[in-house]
Design a protein around this nucleic acid. Sequence first.
DNA 1: CAAACATATGAACATATATTCATATGTACA
DNA 2: TGTACATATGAATATATGTTCATATGTTTG
Lengths: 100, 100
Amino acid sequence: MDNINHDDDYLLQKAAMFFSVLGDTGRIKIIKILSEEEMCVSDLAEAIEASQSAVSHQLSILKQNDIVKYRREGKNIIYSLDDDHVQDIFKIGLEHVKHK
Amino acid sequence: MDNINHDDDYLLQKAAMFFSVLGDTGRIKIIKILSEEEMCVSDLAEAIEASQSAVSHQLSILKQNDIVKYRREGKNIIYSLDDDHVQDIFKIGLEHVKHK
DNA sequence: CAAACATATGAACATATATTCATATGTACA
DNA sequence: TGTACATATGAATATATGTTCATATGTTTG
């Protein structure tokens, strides 16, 4: 079977979306940091050397795609990776490019 | 250590690039097909319902990023996945979105 | 309750990216 | 060797995407 059916098509589209979310320098840096420790927005901004607004927009995209979760703690909002699965994929991707 | 050093930075950039290559509907369809069988350009174009030119451009990007390899066979050029690693990452990503 | 702090969000702009169209390159075969 | 077939490629265009700027929302504390 060469062709791609509609069920496949839907899943592939979701997969492409998922990978494209990982495929941004700013977002992958955020994921890298959150794979080590949870962190609030302003600290993330400082860590990856980006503006608060840029980070917030990126986090919004990561949220929409179930890659990060968050909780409020006083004035801060603490972000962390949504599940270990994301971290696994991130690490595998990193290993892949390391050996290329 | 919160910050990202320069070695990390370089690897993360490569990882982002790698993921962004996977993060396109057309390219992920190509990868899906090539994960099952090798195929020439015109058959790929037919299978994913895209123009010859579009597929060729996408294959060019996949080549540049060591995701596919190819060989000539008469008039045709046969493409296949460069290594199993890519296929693994593709499948893990697919499983991930399937359960979301 | 006002001021300060932390984060989110919309609009505008700049840049990146994918597709199309036209055409070039390379191969086979009559 | 010329014609058909398969693929690649450059330029142009349309669209998607990321960042910035300004400002809104929500929370704490004096």
